[in-house]
Design a binder for these strands. Structure first.
Length: 409
DNA sequence: CGAGATTCATGTGAAGTATACCTTTAGGCTTAA
DNA sequence: AAGCCTAAAGGTATACTTCACATGAATCTCGTA
């Protein structure tokens, strides 16, 4: 009986016409054939990189602009085109793209260099080798044959914040170590003030050229949404006003096009799931919630155990009491939880760092303040929407195999 | 009453430790001549 | 004797701990008006 029901469900599902024609067009990884409203930046970028084709070394480049302003997309696009032209001109070139924010992949000097070496087919163990050795392997890989290498470091500000700017200094000096190849760097950053806090030597060599990506305005976002949705959706499934509203949402905070596209895609998915034939404005609202929820839940899920326990302590402690919570209380509570699931607690020193990192991730909000006679501590509050909290708790309890005691509530 | 000293709770930097993983080296065993 | 495997030695990165000092405003102290 169940079998029959399911069969029918699947058959229906297949028979049902999807609202989408090509959903991937709305995904962040999608590379459009042409990039709108970024002509100026593309031109700049192209003219800076063009000397490659004549065998000259282009300047290092620093690209900055807020999230969702098309930095990554544009840089990838131009470098791909350049790569194609280079092939035609019989110039050997290689583009290495790395996102420095990815935990466990490119968030330390060792891992970053290792990752770049792996790009050239070298096997580098996750630990054990001296960093110098990894550099050597990387240099050798670069220098095997005469070529031009373009290294793109996305979200470079995150990396420097974490491990300092010496790494970039090393990278800018690569060329003097190489006999055959030439390397130039492109740094991409969300933080507009990032370069100013760099060591002057690093600063001058990294930002020989700079390109600024201003936010899109609402009209530009509308245009982008229209063009893409024309490919992504069936004709006439989007109700009037939806695109405008979507653009307005995104323009509200600094013209984030990625966000607008995601919003539209999720709204479409929601409409489809509810068997609606048309994407309406109310879908946008629920899409906004869903995106935020998914993002945070995924973030929480991917955290290491100790981070999860710390977060769990913060959430519960926070919902238990109305007043602000402080590091000390959190730590006591954290220890209690560790006891309950028989796990050796970390020291307060470490937990303090973990709290700071959770702050960086944007899950919580921490602020160091001095309470005069009563010492100095971090005042901690959650920075996730209230309606997500229960879900986070659920995930954490599942992951940590915690049985919640009623006394906690 | 107010300037300066004191105090508290924890932030924060530096150095040390445990762990997991790497390469190299040396010894022991097998194998083939 | 040469080749191969294994285990020990010696080395590294990373996550964490230990130690010690820094912070900064509420509170206290004490001289002064």
């Amino acid at each position: 009986m169940q079998e029959k029901k399911l069969g029918k469900f699947f058959k229906n599902y297949v028979g049902k016409k999807s609202l989408f024609v090509n959903k991937s067009v709305l995904q962040a990884s999608y590379m459009p054939n042409e990039i709108n409203h970024r002509d100026e930046q593309i031109e700049q970028l192209a003219s800076i990189l063009a000397p490659t084709l004549r065998g000259d070394l282009p300047s290092n480049l620093f690209v900055y602009g807020k999230t969702g302003t098309g930095k990554t997309l544009t840089v990838k696009y131009v470098s791909e085109q350049l790569n194609k032209s280079a092939e035609e001109e019989k110039v050997l070139m290689e583009v290495v793209y790395l996102n420095c924010k990815l935990k466990k992949i490119a968030d330390t000097e060792y891992r970053l260099v290792a990752q770049m070496a792996r790009h050239f087919g070298k096997a580098i163990p996750p630990t054990g080798l001296p960093t110098d050795e990894v550099y050597n392997v990387f240099y050798k890989a670069l220098d095997e044959e005469k070529k031009f290498v373009l290294i793109i470091l996305d979200e470079i500000d995150q990396l420097v914040k974490k491990i300092g700017d010496e790494l970039i200094y090393n990278l800018t000096r690569i060329n003097s170590e190489l006999k055959n190849s030439n390397v130039s760097l492109i740094g991409i950053s969300n933080d507009l003030t990032f370069v100013n806090n760099l060591d002057p030597r690093v600063k001058s060599s990294l930002s020989e050229e700079e390109i600024l990506f201003p936010p899109y305005n609402a009209i530009q976002i509308q245009d982008i949404l229209r063009k893409r949705s024309k490919i992504a959706f069936q004709p006439k499934v989007i109700k009037e006003g939806v695109i405008e509203k979507c653009a307005a949402y995104a323009a509200r905070d600094h013209g984030d096009a990625r966000r607008a596209l995601e919003l539209l895609r999720v709204a479409g998915e929601l409409a489809e799931r509810k068997n609606n034939k048309i994407v309406k404005i109310e879908h946008l609202d629920s899409a906004e919630n869903k995106i935020e929820k998914d993002r945070i839940l995924e973030l929480v899920r991917s955290q290491p155990k100790q981070f999860q326990i710390t977060l769990y302590a913060i959430i519960l402690k926070n919902s238990l009491q109305k007043e602000k919570v402080y590091t000390g209380e959190i730590y006591d509570y954290y220890k209690k939880i560790c006891n309950e699931i028989s796990l050796r607690p970390l020291t307060q020193r470490r937990v303090s760092d973990i709290i700071a990192e959770l702050d960086m991730l944007g899950v919580i909000n921490g602020r160091v303040l001095s309470k005069g006679r009563y010492g100095r501590t971090r005042e901690i509050s959650l920075s996730v929407p209230k309606f997500i909290e229960p879900k986070i708790i659920e995930i954490l309890e599942e992951n940590l195999e915690i049985e919640r005691k009623n006394e906690l509530f």
